[in-house]
Every structure is written in structure tokens, then in C-alpha cells.
Design a protein around this nucleic acid. Structure first.
Length: 490
RNA sequence: CGGGGUGUGGCGCAGUCCGGUUAGCGCGUUCGCUUAGGGUGCGAGAGGCCGGAGGUUCGAAUCCUCUCACCCCGACCA
């Protein structure tokens, strides 16, 4: 009761904010736009990291770490890149404080001004390519497949926990290749890795596509992305993979000698996902009772809540509960036995629902007597009483079932809210309902811009799987040969 | 940077228009008892320079001036 959260339908963004705070995922920090990620939220992020990191390693990548600070001059080496990021960079100008002459507090020491100002990385292409210049001389040094887990800073005007914060955590992959084909293949491979992760671990269906010119990463030739639908029908870009061509190689003079002895610029890619995925996870599945986590990413997959009256019962119940825990843990599940005597069962039920624990096992005196146990699933709120000896089989099956069901539910929701529009009127009204709209577009930035101004919707992507289809642009009526995906977005 | 709003115990708020004793309430917290299959109930307690500075007044959470911070809505973005 003390932790009730607002209804999704009343105020979606308030619901989101409250769920993040009440479920103990994150809170605002003293610095505007930054956030404190709390242990439970960080545990989910760690699960994401673990899964992704394995996928990166399995595709041949290694981790490295590059510095937080970047010489200001580096950013400007690539023209589009600097233009894209200059407006949101934090800059370090001094390296020392001194005590205030008035006696209290500290002030920046004007004597300690840096020769060259440093920027706090908004992304690391520039420092990394500066290193690559030294690391790559021959085709034998290629491909170079690196990833780093890091924090980056982009000084955003409006921030929201996880969805957009001034500082966020992410991974950024940076690769260098001998040929264009290989770099393009890498770009697409990593997009597939992201799609695989988001769909199969996060249980959020995505649309894979290419960004239009105006939405492209600053400095890339092509930006691929995965777009997910949130429960309010808005789109959220869940990951991006960029084909950089030779842009950064040229900017940082990274050349290699080919087998034939010719000197050529290398081809690059970069790709990233961030703590924004946490926002996607929350907004895709959760409900008015709190978080709903897919089992594969839930820090606690099963919680056992004992029910008892008095010490004698407590002991008897606990003994069985511990055996259940052992049994389930041996099946590879992460199980918590909440034997705290300071909270009542009902309180615990509500608490673990708020935290999105996929399965709750309740065990009490009645069960002790009947040889049964109650299991409740978070996704559907269904409860059932099963025989105690069946528990590990039932729970193991249910874990898989929940993972599938959550994905299925999100997929169904997306299908129901995805439409085609052939007139501008229909287009606008669909957007107002909160939907993904497939429509024809004449391919110009001007049209895209006008549609954005008039409807607040953007082209999320040109879907990779959208078929050729002749049609007329929704706004201008000019010819178009395929539909693109429009939506309002986070 | 425009437009709107809010600052009062840890959290959420009332009180502010119309100044007047010890500044209330809910949650949380502490202690005791009670309870335990959906956020137990009762009792007792702790905890607040009312965002900050200045002013008006016999008297300011309340009125005036200035200031700071945060939130929401827009322009920018993963």
C-alpha cells in the first residue's frame, strides 16, 4: 500500500518514473540529469552485460578500455562527427581547486587552466581510431575487433531515468577491416546479435532497419538499428550498428599494406547498446503492479516465501523451503528464500511483484500437511497449487513458459498496433493512437522533416525486410518503391 | 533557452489566498504487545533553523523583493 504506483493508462510517463524508483532500480542524483543505479537495477544491467559480453566474445571480439577524456581537437577531426556531438559535450578546462579566499568551500584555481581542454567522451571513435593508427600497419593486423564497456556523457537538455541521462553506461564496439564487404558484414552481424539479445533475452520484439540520412550516426555512412515498441505505442531505439566506411580511417590516417603491397585506408564499424535498454525492458513488459522481468534477465528468478505462525511452524516450514531452494538452485535457477521475520507474507508478495520476480513459491503449514506448494507466476498473476515433489519440473517449465509468454505478449501488442497508412489523414490518426505506421515516403529529407514537424513522428527506419512495393508518398504523392516505418519515439 | 509547476521531519502531502499560541496528516522509522495463505491491529516514542538571503510587522511557513534548486511541457538526442 505504501508503494502503490500510478496506473499506466492514467499517466504513462509518471507510471514509468514511479516504477523505476519504487522497484529500487534507480533514482535521481544530486547532479541534474545523472542517476544513481541502485543494486537491484544494477543487477539487471549486469545480467544484460554478461549475456551480451558472451555474445561479443563468441563473435570474435575482445574487450579493451580507452580513456574517459579526449583531447578537444580529436573530436573535430571528422567533420560530421564533431557537428553531431559538439552541442552536448562536457568540457574539462581546469585541473585544480583551491580553498576559497573567504574561507569556506573551494573554487576553481584560475592558475590551473589546461593547455588543451579535454572533453568527456560522448563516444569513443576518435580516441580509439587514434590508437588504431598505431596498431594497424598490415593486412595481418586486421580485422581488429574490440569492444569496451564504459560510461559516456552527453549533456542532454531533458533527461529521464535510463531512457536519457547525461551520463550513461554502455558498450561500444569498434572494429577495423581490410575490405568494405567485411566491414558491412560486421555491421549487420552485430545488428543481428543485438536483435537476438533483445528478442531472446529481453523478450522484446524488434524491427531491424536502416536509418535515413537525417537520423544517421554522425560520421557513419549507414546506421542500422533495432526499434522496439513500448506499451504506449511509441518506438524506442534499442541498439545501433554503424558502417563507418573509411571516414575515421581517413580522419585519423589509419592505413594498412595489403597483401599486394598497396596502401589502403581501413574500413570501420561501431555499435552500441546502453542502459537505455533498461528503459525498454521496463516499458515493454511491466504493469500496474510493478516490474515484469523476463526470467533470463531477472536477478531473482524464483522467490520462496515461507508462511508460518510461531517458531515451531517456522522451523518446520523453513526446513522444506530450504530443500526447495537447494533443489531449484541445482537446476541452475537463481533462487531467493526470503526468511525475514520482519515482514509478513502478504507484504512480501506485493514486494516481489513490484520487483518483477518471475515466480513466487509460497510454502506454509497447509502445504506441509498436504505435501503441496503454491506457485504463482508474475506475468499472468496465476496461482496454482502443485505437489511438492513436482516443484523442480514445474518451475523449470514455467520459467521457459514465462519467457515465451512475455515475448508473445509484446509481439501481439506490436502487431495489434502496427498498421499501414495510405492517406495522410489516416496516418495522423494512427499516430495519435500510438502506433507503428508503415507508409510510403518520397525519400527526401525535406519531406521527412515536414512530417516530423506536423506529426511529431519520425522515420524510425527503413525496415530490412520490407518488400518492394510501388506507392505514393504519404505527404507529397511522389513515387516511392517501399514503405518505411514511422512512429513517435523516445 | 521559452511556457507551466513545486520547494514544509527519511518519503508523499495539508497549511500560504485572509500573518496570531506548542506547524499538522499519511507512509516509513524505533519500542512493546498482537498477528501471519495478499502490503496485520493497537499503544507509546523519536524526528522539522517551513529551499536560501533580505525586507514589512509587536508577530512571518503565510505578505514584499531578490536568489537557488528541482520537476513537467517544447526545441536537441542513444
Amino acid at each position: 500500500m505504501g508503494k502503490a504506483i500510478p496506473n499506466r493508462s492514467d499517466d504513462y510517463s509518471l507510471w514509468y518514473n514511479e516504477i523505476v524508483k519504487k522497484a529500487g532500480l534507480a533514482e535521481n542524483s544530486p547532479v541534474r540529469g545523472c542517476m544513481v543505479i541502485k543494486p537491484y537495477g544494477f543487477a539487471i544491467w549486469e545480467k544484460m552485460q554478461q549475456s551480451l559480453d558472451k555474445m561479443f566474445k563468441d563473435t570474435g571480439h575482445e574487450n579493451a578500455y580507452f580513456p574517459l577524456f579526449i583531447p578537444k581537437s580529436y573530436l573535430s577531426r571528422e567533420a560530421d562527427h564533431v557537428e553531431g556531438f559538439a552541442k552536448e559535450c562536457a568540457v574539462v578546462t581546469h585541473y585544480r581547486l583551491k580553498t576559497n579566499e573567504d574561507g569556506d568551500g573551494v573554487v576553481v584555481d584560475p592558475e590551473a587552466k589546461l593547455e588543451e581542454e579535454l572533453i568527456v567522451r560522448p563516444t569513443s571513435e576518435t580516441v580509439i581510431w587514434d590508437s588504431y593508427k598505431n596498431w594497424i600497419q598490415s593486412y595481418r593486423d586486421l580485422p581488429l575487433l574490440l569492444n569496451q564497456w564504459a560510461n559516456v556523457v552527453r549533456w542532454e537538455m531533458r533527461t529521464r531515468l535510463f531512457l536519457r541521462t547525461a551520463e550513461f553506461l554502455w558498450q561500444e564496439g569498434h572494429t577495423a577491416h581490410a575490405t568494405k564487404q567485411e566491414a558491412e558484414a560486421e555491421t549487420k552481424q552485430m545488428l543481428d546479435v543485438y536483435a537476438d539479445f533483445v528478442e531472446n533475452y529481453m523478450a522484446v520484439p524488434v524491427v531491424k532497419g536502416v536509418k535515413t540520412e537525417s537520423e544517421r550516426f554522425a560520421g557513419a555512412l549507414d546506421t542500422y538499428c533495432i526499434e522496439a515498441m513500448m506499451q504506449d505505442g511509441k518506438a524506442l531505439q534499442a541498439g545501433t550498428s554503424h558502417f563507418l566506411g573509411q571516414n575515421f580511417a581517413k580522419a585519423f590516417d589509419v592505413k594498412f599494406a595489403t597483401k599486394e603491397g598497396k596502401e589502403e585506408y581501413v574500413w570501420g564499424t561501431s555499435w552500441g547498446v546502453s542502459t537505455r535498454l533498461m528503459g525498454a525492458l521496463i516499458m515493454a513488459h511491466s504493469d500496474d503492479d510493478g516490474l515484469v522481468l523476463p526470467p533470463k534477465l531477472a536477478p531473482i528468478q524464483v522467490v520462496i516465501v515461507p508462511i508460518y505462525k510461531g517458531d515451531e511452524q517456522r522451523e518446520a516450514v523453513s526446513k522444506v523451503a530450504k530443500a526447495i531452494k537447494k533443489d531449484l538452485s541445482e537446476k541452475g535457477l537463481s533462487v531467493k528464500f526470503d526468511d525475514r521475520d520482519t515482514h509478513k507474507p502478504g507484504w512480501k508478495f506485493a514486494e516481489y511483484e513490484l520487483k518483477g520476480v518471475p515466480i513466487r513459491v509460497a510454502f506454509g503449514p497447509k502445504d506441509l500437511e498436504n505435501g503441496t506448494v503454491e506457485i504463482a507466476r508474475r506475468d499472468t498473476k496465476e496461482k496454482q497449487v502443485i505437489r511438492l515433489e513436482d516443484i523442480s519440473v514445474q518451475v523449470t517449465n514455467l520459467i521457459d513458459e514465462i519467457q515465451k509468454n512475455i515475448f508473445g505478449k509484446a509481439l501481439t501488442f506490436r502487431k495489434e498496433n502496427t498498421h499501414q497508412a495510405d492517406t495522410y489523414e489516416a496516418f495522423k490518426s494512427l499516430l495519435d493512437q500510438g502506433a507503428f505506421v508503415y507508409a510510403h515516403w518520397d525519400g527526401t529529407t525535406e519531406t521527412e522533416e515536414r512530417i516530423k514537424e506536423e506529426t511529431k513522428a519520425t522515420i524510425r527506419c527503413i525496415p530490412l525486410d520490407s518488400p518492394e512495393e510501388m506507392g505514393a508518398c504519404i505527404l507529397t504523392g511522389k513515387v516511392s518503391n517501399r514503405r518505411v516505418l514511422f512512429a513517435r519515439a523516445y
